[in-house]
Design a protein around this nucleic acid. Sequence first.
DNA 1: CGCGGCTTTGATGTTCATCAAGTAAAGTGG
DNA 2: CCACTTTACTTGATGAACATCAAAGCCGCG
Lengths: 231, 231
Amino acid sequence: MHCSYLHSNCSECLFQSLFFEKLSPNQLTLIEENHNARLYKKGEIVCAQGELVDNFMFLRSGLIKLYSTDEAGNVRIISLAKPLDCLGLMSVFSNKTYLYSISAIEDSLVCFVPVSVLRSIIADNGAFALCFLEKISSVNDMVLQTRIELSQKQLRGKIAHSLLYFSQIVYNSQSFELPVSRKEIGELIDVRTENVIRVLSEFRNEDIINTDGKQITIKNIEKLKLLSKHG
Amino acid sequence: MHCSYLHSNCSECLFQSLFFEKLSPNQLTLIEENHNARLYKKGEIVCAQGELVDNFMFLRSGLIKLYSTDEAGNVRIISLAKPLDCLGLMSVFSNKTYLYSISAIEDSLVCFVPVSVLRSIIADNGAFALCFLEKISSVNDMVLQTRIELSQKQLRGKIAHSLLYFSQIVYNSQSFELPVSRKEIGELIDVRTENVIRVLSEFRNEDIINTDGKQITIKNIEKLKLLSKHG
DNA sequence: CGCGGCTTTGATGTTCATCAAGTAAAGTGG
DNA sequence: CCACTTTACTTGATGAACATCAAAGCCGCG
């Protein structure tokens, strides 16, 4: 946790260019001196529903899921986060405790900045506040939008959507290894595991995709887009 | 649109106490000189999906719905807004155009502040930015949270939820007149009109509520809460 | 080696959308 | 103000979509 890699200079962090460009040298130093980073192994929990929010977090590398668990133990994945995404939606500002749990899907490097530090900088630096507001609100919009769109689709459309998501947004390739189990895909799009499997088989039989365990190859992306759109 | 009532002093507006307490006298004056207000009749459209976002809006009185329409013409109500709520979620900062349409469910008075003015104030005043961020992000969290909860419930649970919403959040009374049609309730919770009606009839037969047209009286609120919780 | 979790396929049942048809209420134009 | 049209409301019957249940093979791991 204290190796130099983890404490690399904030001004060199890719994240800087997205979020921190409006910071004064003093403010950047403040963050550098107060930030922290930690590597999480696949499956490790970064924070749990109900815990106190005390850090703003963003993902430097890996893949993370944001999820909630109800009394019955049903898991619902709210969203995935890729490198350079910030975690926890806006809970940082609207809630004392996390509304959702966060855990690592792949080995992940997470960077932490205490909320108190971030707050003081926002209070001091309106230009940064504005920039921050824009970036973070667009994430929120996207999550809501996705959820609304998904709720209109049915089985095949939902599966098509999630395959396209991994292909286009996460891996940028027509062939990739699924980072999640069939069960987790179901949790992401609100479908039972059995049906995820069934539809993947259908798609394979219809020559839309190829599957070999977690390895997926998209053979007919246009068909997939059509399916995702139609519903 | 130019009567003195509509242009009443911002410093006296209830909204001020929620949002504008951190403003300097100069900034308050800036808003007073640039704001606008308009009364919308029931059914009137305040803004349509795709239009340019140029004002920040909040509701002084009435009731408003935020909704989206897909190619097939299906309407989906994203959220309702009560007096003192701000409209349009965060689109103000993350989008050039509105993601959703907004229209008046009841006669409504809407107050407008140009986005450019708001932006300049945020850039100048970090304390206000922080306050603004908190308030607006909690609305977003709530909308997402509600949508997730709703998606786990089934028919009877969804209807119970929406009855409780009107009773507890909008009207604060066990007896109220529904401001929306059965169809709109369906659009709000993603259920067909016929099923909204069917379940309302069931609830009436089970002595959970009384209905007389749009007049609803909740007779067994505990049962309703149970139904809403269970699913 | 055996246990538990993930994957797969088939059979069954429930939930809800859809279709149909009729009544009531609310606008609309002559 | 009344005939007319449209929109809202209501109930029943049918079917499709999907959850649930069951059973079996697979794989990794202690």
